[in-house]
């Protein structure tokens, strides 16, 4: 039996604490957490202690540690690219990088090039792309790649802390910044861009294969306190993205893909929770096929994917070019939605 892979974690905030450590705790046959880095020493110490790992505030210490086989990059977005490159340069065997794994196509291409030449397995933490409900639904409605005409993502959620607190006990939760002035068009544009890169991005890798060529944003608006409506056209298909985050407890996270002869409806669990997979309904010829739920979610599946690539030499489910294209799709959409909103607010 192969020894579990050693994991080093860069960034020990709520994502690491509520998502990755509980997930890795269920995959002890595959992974053991070796080292945890955070710029806040007390957070690093607290989180490392609960995982039985070494604490550090130094990224280099993690990357230089020979017991670290794979690196989980859970730091703020702007550090992802440099950390992926550093992990590759340090000779690590695999990387799980939280989304977005870069902030531009140029950066993403550079990362993919480095990871490709170093033969490092790279998995982006897009958990819905690994959710068994989605993967099974997709397998049962393959014709929608050709026939889908309308797609809709509906993401209505409470704020993250509600779910973080059920997955773990968060140490050092970041203090919220001042409330932005959402009457300022520039702020609204920045927030809708942030919504795309922080929330909508969960489903964009699922949508992109059905509508890969982003043509235009037809409408965009921000909804306070955090959300928005974006209508877009891509590859001749029509996509509505409705997102609304607010204090109310009730979550609703769905993805619908409609064609003339088939449709798929997927319901996902909220982020952070470990409540098994989503569920799906595929409709065809007047019949419905209900799929799921499965006992584990996309978080486990993405780590299992990394293990299979690193320890088993498995081919990646999503190639590097897919990761680049996913990232570019999101950044382009974020830019266009922000531009549309600015234009609309000026009109």
């Amino acid at each position: 039996m192969t020894a579990p892979l050693g994991v080093g974690v860069l960034g020990a905030g709520p994502v690491t604490q509520a998502i990755h450590l509980p997930t890795l705790a269920r995959l002890r046959d595959k992974f053991r957490v070796v080292s945890i880095m955070d710029v806040d020493k007390s957070v690093a110490n607290s989180v490392a202690a609960r995982a039985g790992a070494t604490a550090t505030t130094s990224e280099d210490e993690v990357l230089d540690d020979p017991a670290v086989d794979v690196v989980a990059i859970c730091s703020p977005h702007q550090f992802h690219a440099a950390q992926v490159e550093a992990a590759c340069a340090a000779g690590k065997r695999g990387i799980l990088c939280e989304k977005p794994f870069a902030v531009s196509r140029a950066e993403a291409t550079q990362i993919a090039s480095v990871a490709g030449s170093a033969s490092v397995a790279l998995v982006v933490g897009a958990m819905h792309a690994y959710d068994p409900a989605w993967l099974n639904a997709r397998a049962k409605c393959g014709e929608l790649i050709e026939t889908a005409h309308t797609i809709r993502s509906t993401i209505v959620l409470p704020f993250n802390d509600r779910f973080e607190d059920w997955a773990t006990e968060v140490a050092g939760r970041p203090t919220p910044g001042p409330r932005p002035d959402t009457t300022d068009p520039a702020v609204r544009a920045a927030m809708i861009s942030g919504m795309v890169m922080g929330v909508t991005i969960h489903d964009l890798p699922l949508i992109r294969p059905f509508a890969p060529r982003l043509e235009r944003v037809d409408f965009a608006d921000f909804i306070a306190p955090f959300g928005g409506v974006i209508s877009l056209t891509a590859s001749g298909r029509y996509i509505d993205l409705v997102t609304y985050m607010r204090p109310l407890w009730r979550p609703e996270w769905t993805l619908d893909i409609w064609g003339e002869d088939c449709s798929a409806h997927v319901e996902f669990t909220p982020s952070y929770v470990h409540a098994g997979s989503g569920t799906a309904v595929v409709r065809r010829d007047g019949r419905e096929v209900h799929l799921g739920p499965w006992p584990s979610n996309g978080y486990e599946a993405e780590w299992a994917e990394l293990y299979d690539q690193v320890a088993g030499g498995a081919a990646p489910r999503y190639a590097l070019i897919d990761l680049i294209d996913d990232l570019t799709y999101a950044t382009d959409l974020a830019e266009q939605a922000a531009a549309w909103l600015l234009q609309g607010d000026r009109a």
Partner: peptide, 11 residues
């Protein structure tokens, strides 16, 4: 917002 033979969105 958009219209097609299969769907529309009005805001």
């Amino acid at each position: 917002s958009r219209w097609s033979p299969n769907s529309f969105t009005i805001v």
